[in-house]
């Protein structure tokens, strides 16, 4: 019968149309909020998603997965009396591994001895070149450079980020990537205890 296929197709769109209302009603009946709640957003990105699929950014946001990467930032630890202890040692691995070469680092030198000290004087990332690949964060041995979750960074001018714009506290890192942070901290602790044990062992050996 001519037209059967069209009717079949129309039944699909028809079902889709009504499911938006049925879905909303079922949420209201069960006393849950489908919109502007985390539960609702989660539901809309699950296999059960039907009905309205839209996540109404900026009023609500998709759940950002831990590994999401946008642009990189530099981590500093908050020392006593608010001193910023930059984790970066200016080893330069990120600058070397960066595929489009958008990282510029000036290594600090001790003014007296002229020897390099592990801290960058200047650090630039040209965000108009950065390809968000995440290599810098992946290969940084000190967890000093991390990929950010914040994507609301559009501006009215070009974006070259300097140290001031790049630095963010470790607490922010913990907040956006709790699992990675915990793993890094555990690794760091393990390293420190191993170092201490080694030092103690060496001291004991020297003592005997």
């Amino acid at each position: 019968m001519y037209g059967k296929g069209i009717l079949k197709g129309l039944s699909v769109t028809w079902k889709r149309f009504w499911s938006t209302y049925l879905e909303d009603i079922s949420w209201v009946m069960s006393g849950k909020k489908r919109y502007f709640t985390e539960e609702g957003v989660k539901h809309r990105s699950s296999k059960h998603a039907r009905g309205i699929f839209t996540v109404q950014y900026p009023e609500e946001q998709l759940i950002t997965p831990e590994e999401f990467r946008y642009v990189p930032f530099l981590v500093y630890d908050e020392g006593v009396d608010g001193k910023k202890e930059v984790r970066c040692t200016s080893c330069g691995i990120c600058a070397k591994v960066c595929p489009p070469q958008c990282i510029w680092i000036v290594r600090s030198n001790d003014p007296n001895t002229g020897r390099p000290i592990p801290e960058p004087t200047e650090f630039y990332i040209d965000m108009d070149i950065c390809m968000n690949c995440g290599f810098c964060a992946e290969y940084c041995p000190f967890d000093a450079i991390i990929m950010d979750h914040d994507f609301d960074i559009a501006s009215y001018s070009r974006n070259v980020y300097n140290m001031e714009k790049l630095l963010k506290p470790a607490s922010y890192y913990r907040q956006i990537r709790p699992e990675n942070y915990a793993r890094n901290e555990a690794e760091r602790k393990a390293k420190e205890t191993a170092k201490a044990a080694k030092a103690a062992g060496a001291a004991a050996q020297a003592g005997t």
């Binding site: 950014y57 946001q61 642009v71 108009d128 950065c130 994507f151 960074i153 559009a154 009215y156 070009r158």
Partner: peptide, 24 residues
Amino acid sequence: DVYIPGCPPTPQALIAGLIKLQQK
């Protein structure tokens, strides 16, 4: 008028940029 960094900007980042344009 507006620069949106990112490679590529996610749709949400694009919308954030367009909101910046609306503000302008």
